[in-house]
Write a protein that binds this DNA or RNA. Structure first.
Lengths: 220, 220
DNA sequence: ACCTGAACACCGTTCAAGT
DNA sequence: ACCTGAACACCGTTCAAGT
């Protein structure tokens, strides 16, 4: 596995495919068809090489995904944060949400090891700092950050998956259930009727985020 | 595919494996080794039949998972709810959380089609009703439920996956990052140090839930 | 009606060999 | 050093045939 090319000359056979090319091809497969379609074999045909050629540039598939993630993380420009604690947390959390919403598959990896490379420590630091500035003790602020992260991850995962589900066109079980709902057992849901489906599609991240920050800072 | 056996006599060859046996075997594989290990082939060897025999009792693997989910949902005993709106939402949400925490793999399916069978409408109904009783208009109450669901799903998924990750023993990337952290760039995180890891492991669901309910009902 | 056997179209990855 | 070819140990599922 070659390191970054600081050496002007290297011995041996010249490389036909580079790590950068692999990452670029992987990104384009993911963008076009989703992360589920990214396989080593598919990537190989895309690059015109054998599957095994890839293993000379990345350790394994997990390594490839981590490289993709870091490459993306490094190019993110995080926003400036306002002074006011509540707002600071809100803007930092929203930035995390938006950065991840642009590459939903990343959340699936993050939830396993929840760290968007070192670059993303910016988010944790900012949110913890905002909560401390808002009056929480440090350990409480850290827990508050975890709560924000769980909420953000849940929002992104649920939305990403129901979007994928909607893209396939077999009818959703949910729509079917709401069609014939027992109004005696479930009066509220029956009253909502099919409006529930459009309400569920709306962006509720800000609503929950504001509530969460308010509630978490209340004890301060 | 046979329906439920209301017919006293049926013609043809007697069945060697039943749908109930398949579901039982599937559950025991999942409990012992996780849902990732549940494959049609593995299930077949467990039952002493060929993989294809299973397809006579379930449509496909997704159908099998849905059957497992519904079987579990039907056996859940939901708690009685208190009158006070805030408490009603809290108890219902906590019940949803606990029911799913006992079978974490279910969340992975739910997030695709977010409905725990018809039985689980109890949760949505209770939470929406609690928010309405707390003073929110119906559409707002429905959005508030969605927020609670996203938070709950995120908590469960993040915890389930980091638990799985911890079970494998390759060192987590997170621990490594916290070991050598730049105290100038990330003062709060550096101050937390390795305490962050134990804080992250703690159960923060109630903390966030209470904050969320408070915040969501504030506008009422 | 219920089940088997062989096959198809996939996976990620190892290992020995080629240039 | 970089890549290929063949192979291993898996997947879910279809299809034709057996009892």
């Amino acid at each position: 596995m070659p390191s970054s090319s600081s050496q002007p000359q290297r011995t041996g056979r010249p490389a036909r495919i580079s790590r950068a090319e692999i990452l670029a091809a992987a990104n384009s497969v993911i963008d076009a068809e989703g992360v589920a379609k990214l396989t080593m074999r598919r990537l190989a045909t895309e690059l015109g090489c054998t599957p095994m050629a890839l293993y000379h540039h990345v350790r394994d598939k997990e390594d490839l995904l981590r490289l993709l993630l870091n490459e993306y993380a490094d190019q993110v420009a995080w926003p400036d944060l306002p002074e006011e604690p509540r707002e600071r947390v809100r803007v930092a959390a929203r930035a995390m949400h938006d950065v991840l919403a642009a590459r939903p598959w990343i959340v699936e990896i993050l939830t396993a090891d929840d760290l968007l490379g070192v670059s993303a420590l910016w988010v944790s630091e900012s949110i913890v700092d905002g909560f401390v500035a808002g009056g929480l003790p440090l350990d409480r602020a850290a827990q508050a950050y975890r709560v924000i992260w769980h909420y953000t991850a849940g929002d992104l995962i649920v939305r990403a998956r129901s979007a994928r589900r909607a893209a396939e066109d077999r009818p959703t079980f949910r729509a079917q259930v709401f069609a014939d709902l027992d109004a005696d057992s479930f009066p509220r849901l029956a009253a909502l009727g099919s409006d529930y489906l459009s309400l569920a599609a709306q962006d509720t991240y800000d609503l929950g985020l504001a509530a969460l920050i308010d509630g978490l800072l209340r004890s301060a």
